[in-house]
Design a protein around this nucleic acid. Structure first.
Lengths: 109, 109
DNA sequence: AACTTTTATCGTAATATTACGATTAAATAA
DNA sequence: TTATTTAATCGTAATATTACGATAAAAGTT
């Protein structure tokens, strides 16, 4: 059918998947890197940096904002975006939780 | 258009995005967790554990295998899947590289 | 008020993903 | 050889994502 059966999985599984999914596009990785590079992080700056149209960038920003990894503050006519450090810390904790076990798992086959 | 412009981004950005993307589905998170729980990790066991059909599970396994996070060994008529610990270690290193900077980034706005 | 700048949203088209049943292929068992 | 078992692949339909141009909305400027 093509619809992801979120209801069949736990909240923990869905949340973690949504977090990974938000980072599962090169443009969104690039946006994060741009936000790191520039301290002043106006939307227009990102559009200048990336080879995508303004509307597409806006969509990607919305997805990152949806999972809370970035936040945007309206400053006059423009919007200042930046990393939401506390959300990243929380995300890292969740990822580390599963990752630290995984790297220690012996390969049985 | 709807096609991801991979060619416009760096290999590092594409690789990292592909890694995250592979983990961006609750079924694939669940599969990883099943592989952790059971040491013997025959495909059929996973199908029993998850509320998805055999063919769908097989597709998800293929995606995880594509990015190298799991490996499968043919043992008779069945296939034994398991975590590829070294690939996870590499993935964790890549993720940590960007994550550790992010959690220290002050929120300017 | 009229204009400009900036970003979000709308409408759309193209591609990708998800899911399932049916079939195939490969190995074992009878 | 002929089943049987197991997993991958094929065919398909439905939904989601990606991307863009055009338009709208909101704030500042003249």
């Amino acid at each position: 059918m093509g619809i992801t059966k979120s209801d069949k999985f736990t909240n923990q599984q869905n949340d973690l998947a949504n977090l990974f999914k938000a980072l599962g596009h090169p443009a969104r990785i690039a946006i994060i890197q741009t936000l790191l590079k520039r301290q002043a992080c106006v939307c227009g700056d990102i559009v200048e940096d990336l080879p995508l149209s303004q509307s597409t960038i806006s969509q990607h920003l919305a997805e990152l904002k949806k999972v809370g990894l970035i936040k945007g503050t309206i400053t006059g006519p423009s919007v200042c975006y930046c990393i939401n450090a506390s959300a990243w810390a929380k995300a890292k904790t969740e990822m580390d939780k599963i990752m630290s076990v995984l790297i220690k798992t012996p390969s049985v086959c």
